[in-house]
Design a protein around this nucleic acid. Structure first.
Lengths: 220, 220
DNA sequence: TGGTCGGATATTGGATCCAATATAGTGACT
DNA sequence: AGTCACTATATTGGATCCAATATCCGACCA
């Protein structure tokens, strides 16, 4: 009957399904920052009741993707430039730790996986496929971050990425930014291969700083 | 009819009430790590239905206080020494940032509030009131951390504190540890008053390291 | 004309009921 | 005795229904 039930494998519980759909809708910008989330309408559209929907919203609230006001409901979170700066600053700190730890335990396999992801980034970039590039970009970064072997740290960083994903298209929409990202990624890989962790971290810092500057140009 | 409805002001929504009760029960050790959470029994005990209980559990899951397995239910999170080490390491990094930012904006009023909290810590310590000391200790640290003016950072640190609260009594139960904590707090205040941020951070690091060592002695 | 009060309506919060899944226990078979 | 299949039961996941609250809108009044 319902389309969603057909396409692809649906998660075992309704709330996991809803969670995935919501996360995608918000990080992709389909649901715009500040927009109210009408539970009844959304539940009907996803063909579930409001119970699993509300539980999924509670998770997203914890991740900062939505905000909640008692008896008023949920809204897609709005981030000011101050908020974005804070998030990127926290990322800077946490990712430095992750990369430092990861570099000390880096295997040739992991490094190969990172390079593989980078090839996908470049391929998608040349094709102008922003969505694919964003996905590959994420693989690039998280393959490295996950090599830290610190699950909580990875989770925190993931959450911070998700929180700003809705604003990321503002950056990757520009060709120049995409080319710069590719260049920075290559520098990170070189540094890692040479065992120069500090250099890798500096390049990643620069990578992020450019993103912040671009956002500032649009929002500030 | 019900006792909980009478004592004190109850939060406006049932789920906020349940959330507070659960958080208290877990961080205080009333619900032991690894214990399963039977929704029906707990809901009845708190005189609410399972719906607000489940939403509260979702929040606590996001904070890492409980874990969830589909169709098996919620369990109070169990932390290994490896987990504790990771949490304390992340705290070290995040709190350093918070303190550094806070120190740059520290007002005499905030400093006074910190010293006030410290007086409460010492008073409770002398009286041997571990619960009151833990509360005052928290005020001491968070008055400083909140002075950073970085709300997300404060929230992350809060969550990390909560996650290990159930294990904190293992540290503050010992008289020697309590005395050492008092000493370290004083050193932090002195450093802040002299404007020596790095020294304050070093003392806080030592503070945490002692807690980890004590936990290691018990769990490792 | 502006503001405030009050009721109608939309929407969320919560309770109850039903369905799906996991687990424990029982018995047959090797 | 041990193992597998099957059933019974406990527990969670989800749907529906009801209650509480906020918002909107019009009437009334200064």
């Amino acid at each position: 009957m319902n389309g969603a039930a057909q396409r692809g494998r649906r998660p075992p519980t309704a709330q996991q399904f809803v969670l995935g759909e919501l996360r995608r809708a918000i990080t992709s910008g389909e649901l715009k920052p500040g927009a109210p989330i009408r539970q009844d309408a959304l539940a009907e559209r996803l063909d579930v009741s409001r119970v699993p929907l509300r539980e999924a919203l509670k998770i997203l609230e914890g991740e900062g993707l939505v905000v909640h006001e008692a008896h008023r409901g949920y809204f897609v979170a709005v981030l000011s430039m101050t908020d974005l700066r804070e998030i990127y600053r926290i990322r800077e700190i946490l990712e430095a730790e992750a990369v430092r730890t990861a570099a000390a335990r880096l295997t040739p396999e992991t490094l190969a996986a990172i390079e593989e992801a980078q090839r996908d980034v470049e391929r998608a970039g040349e094709a102008g496929d922003v969505t694919a590039m964003a996905a590959a970009n994420r693989r690039f970064h998280f393959t490295l971050i996950e090599a830290s072997g610190m699950p909580r740290l990875v989770r925190l960083i993931t959450t911070l990425w998700d929180a700003t994903d809705a604003y990321r298209s503002l950056y990757y929409g520009d060709t120049l930014n995409r080319e710069r990202a590719v260049h920075e990624h290559r520098a990170v890989i070189s540094a890692l291969r040479e065992g120069d962790v500090n250099s890798a971290i500096r390049w990643l810092d620069r990578h992020r700083a450019h993103a912040v500057a671009a956002l500032d140009g649009v929002l500030g």
